[in-house]
Write a protein that binds this DNA or RNA. Structure first.
Lengths: 251, 251
DNA sequence: TAGGCGAACTTGTTCAAACAAGCTAGGCCC
DNA sequence: GGGCCTAGCTTGTTTGAACAAGTTCGCCTA
């Protein structure tokens, strides 16, 4: 049984998606919604806070809430798992492990994973395709404690996220993502079937468990044009941060 | 006078940044914090909710809250305004308008700005530099109603965001961002001083007022290596969305 | 020693009430 | 007509209380 505020949020979200409340239009006041859903104002406020966090509605003190957009963002699982995302959007997806080996962590990897350098990790190179076209090259480093479970997976396992959840109950709960653009290297260009030096969208990420324990550190490179990231933010909630590039000083 | 929960959040954030609560460590329980700050549990919950939204702490039912990271994310203003961001991070920044003209909106621009095609807009091409190096090329389209205020700005105005706030009280409140990688075109390569076809990080964005009224639609291109975007997310709060290719369902 | 059970603790959900602060529209005055 | 002002509406903040649900850890048993 989901929480009441979650059900109210879902109902309002559906109404927005259906176009019952158009973009730019006002949402009913909290008092009205409280009556309609037979809930207290506090519960209604929690519901609309969910929609605000999703970027669907905006609010400011004194004025009625307004509808900002219609599509809701994907779940964390859909963002984290390429396979689950692709399937949910109706695409044909496949993946293949090209290389996999245990080794000691580099200094940079150890820092990301919260372990000491040279502690054992599992390094995996995975190529993923959309509609038969190679689209994403993943270079992932798994912490040693999860390595055995990863090694048990099939080489062409579709959804690693799903398999690890089903197999050992592992839940990816938090993520930090660094997004930038890089030129395709030799290996990149061969596997993604693009020219050397052509632009790739790079997403580096650390994923951790509920306890904040890092599970994996990954360098994912998308062929230009294949994938776009979208973020909605506001004065009140801004998850997006800009950082000075970590690469070489300008040449 | 800021709200009480905001002050509690600030105090906890400072403690985390100072390292008083290490990454991976537990935060005090809500009950303890309520006593320490002489506030109700509800208020304390609001404070930690702020930190959770910033990605600094994680929480799950039944378990103590844990610290996930130390640096807080930038304010919306710092993300939106290149100049304010650069100054806050201690960099020398400059900007220059290279071209500016009024014209009718294209179909795509009209869709983004919520106006009809051919309605008047102001198109601006702006080059921004960091430490004297050209880093960012902005192609911005302003809605007609704000065009006069933009035209009054100096060609080398540092912070457009700031100038528009001071001048006409305009507040950028909500944004939607699309991030991908593209190859540098002819104009891009000349102005950013890179080879044609070299990778650029592209950020396209629509920014709106409090009322949800679109102000600008912009295509910003960063030289590879100069800037990275960072996003922290969780199962509960996931602002990041992945999309196929360039096309977005136009509403 | 390994496993299971449960008590104490901690966060999640919901309600009701009151006041603060910002916004809007309509009326009033010049 | 234009501008000012206020009454009423709407969202923001805070408190206190109670119960639900999940976690943790020590203790007891096999």
């Amino acid at each position: 049984m989901t929480a009441r505020y979650a059900r109210i949020a879902a109902e309002l979200r559906d109404a927005i998606t259906r176009g019952e409340y158009a973009v730019g239009a006002h949402l009913p006041s909290e008092a009205e919604l409280a009556v309609r859903f037979a809930a207290s104002r506090g519960t209604v406020r929690q519901a609309v806070a969910v929609l605000a966090a999703e970027g669907l509605v905006g609010s400011r003190q004194g004025a009625r809430r307004i509808v900002l957009g219609r599509e809701r963002s994907q779940s964390f699982a859909e963002l984290h798992s390429f396979a689950q995302w692709a399937r949910a959007t109706g695409h044909r997806v496949s993946g293949r492990v090209l290389a996999q080996r245990r080794r000691g962590a580099s200094a940079a990897e150890a820092a990301r994973l919260g372990i000491r350098p040279d502690e054992p990790v599992l390094s995996v190179l995975r190529l993923r395709s959309l509609e038969g076209e190679p689209v994403l090259l993943e270079r992932t480093v798994y912490a040693g404690w999860i390595a055995p479970a990863v090694e048990r997976l099939d080489a062409d396992c579709e959804s690693v996220t799903r398999a690890l959840y089903d197999g050992v109950g592992l839940v990816f709960a938090y993520g930090e993502h660094l997004i930038d653009a890089v030129a395709a290297g030799t290996e990149d260009s061969r596997l993604l079937e693009v020219r050397r030096g052509s632009p790739l969208l790079r997403q580096r990420r650390v994923t951790t468990t509920h306890e904040g324990r890092p599970v994996e550190w990954s360098d994912d490179r998308y062929r230009a044009g294949s994938v776009t990231f979208s973020i909605r933010n506001s004065v009140d909630a801004n998850p997006l941060v800009r950082q000075v590039g970590d690469l070489r000083p300008s040449s």
